[in-house]
Design a protein around this nucleic acid. Structure first.
Lengths: 230, 230
DNA sequence: TCGACCATCGAACGCTGTTCGATGACTCCG
DNA sequence: CGGAGTCATCGAACAGCGTTCGATGGTCGA
């Protein structure tokens, strides 16, 4: 069968989309491509490189689709838009976030995304060190949220067949069942947890970071227009 | 051979400390315990549960060693101290962070740590929703940094035998070799990257978040004593 | 003394990533 | 036209993995 690096990566991404990281198997991928598992090694040195290239592939597409997101007048708004685009992609592909930050040197598109974030920070009045720290913190935060959402739903959920909201409520009940003496906070926020929306949580922490960055740029004066609510 | 859940988890943690997650093998663990691999299944249902319990084990020890870290007068300072304790543990055990947030229901100690963070937030003048968002954001950020540090050093490094600082400089050179037109930010912060210290970066983002939280508590007035520099 | 339960064991199964040598197709050069 | 050589693919095999199973002996209470 006639393959090509593109078709290999394309099918690899499809496999990842369908079953997550454990579903990406050389044999399963070979079956899709209509050939033997050994053939894949012609295009890729090992499974790690396959994963790297697959994630960089989707990062490349994401960069294309968001090419215009850095051109707004407000750099902070651009950072928010860029971060939300990453969040959307991670919601679509839970496996994606997990491999986002292993910049093993290859992964040029991940590096490009990092640079895009940094370019917005260069438009703010910050020191290079502040900019480097800000970019790193933003990426780490995004990846942290990604790792959270990448957790596969416990099989209790898959078995129960409940709606996500109902399952969340069931989970909140488990919080409420804890000993209030040892877990006062769990009780305090059980309701919030039951009703929470992942994107709200993401936006909230993101805005904390962005407000802090903007405050730095404004020279410690209170930031204008920075959303610190919610 | 006579095992016990404690010795099993203890040796599992030792194995993880020595070789990271891939080193934790049922056969390797059995060899350490002086028995067969199948015996481990008496104490643990499968490898996932073994990992969960092992991480919860070290989280338990961490909770003990930091039991006094929530008693300071300033909740924000307590949050910083708690976060730094987690950071230290992740630096000591790179594998630890990766498994910190899979709260599959078991993992009572991870839940306890989450609650401890929340308890400090309960001392701040925030809405329950704000507190839930703040706790989630803090944990996500910490985990994101953890994921970053959990990346095994590329084998180029292990082969070269260079000092970490020298290797970092070599990496920075690679940034400097990129096309400045496509990667302006990489050039802009290459020096910072070469000299950066992981803990500084962590503290920086952490302070952004904490400053934002404190600003929320202060009702949008500029926060007192929140470190926004660096 | 007998049965029940606890803890452990060796052997095996099915799966994984990966390697190797062979095999055919295709291109280029004399 | 013919042979050399690279390209791409293949089947088979290897070592390792998590996991299961049935058997085995040890320990305890009745």
């Amino acid at each position: 069968m006639a393959h090509s690096l593109e078709t290999v990566l394309g099918e690899a991404v499809a496999l990842l989309d369908e079953g997550g990281e454990p579903a990406l198997t050389f044999r399963a991928l070979a079956a899709r491509l209509g050939g033997g598992a050994a053939s894949i090694y012609w295009y890729v040195a090992n499974r790690d490189e396959l994963l790297d290239r697959a994630t960089d592939e989707v990062m490349g597409h994401l960069l294309e689709h968001t090419a215009d997101l850095g051109e707004g007048p407000d750099p902070v708004a651009n950072l928010r838009a860029l971060s939300l685009a990453l969040f959307d992609e991670m919601r679509r592909r839970p496996w994606f976030g997990s491999y986002m930050l292993r910049n093993t040197g290859l992964q040029p598109n991940s590096m490009l995304m990092f640079d895009r974030i940094g370019q917005q920070l260069m438009r703010l009045d910050l020191t290079p060190k502040q900019r480097f720290h800000a970019a790193s913190s933003l990426v780490s935060y995004i990846v942290g949220i990604a790792a959270d959402m990448a957790q596969p739903p416990p099989k209790e959920f898959l078995d129960s067949g409940l709606e996500p909201a109902a399952f969340l409520e069931l989970y909140a009940d488990r919080w409420r069942a804890l000993d209030p003496g040892h877990y006062p906070f769990a009780h305090h926020v059980a309701d919030e947890f039951a009703r929470h929306d992942d994107e709200d949580v993401f936006r909230s922490g993101l805005d904390l970071l962005l407000a802090g960055i903007q405050a730095q740029a404004a020279g410690r004066r209170p930031a204008h227009g920075a959303r610190v609510e919610a």
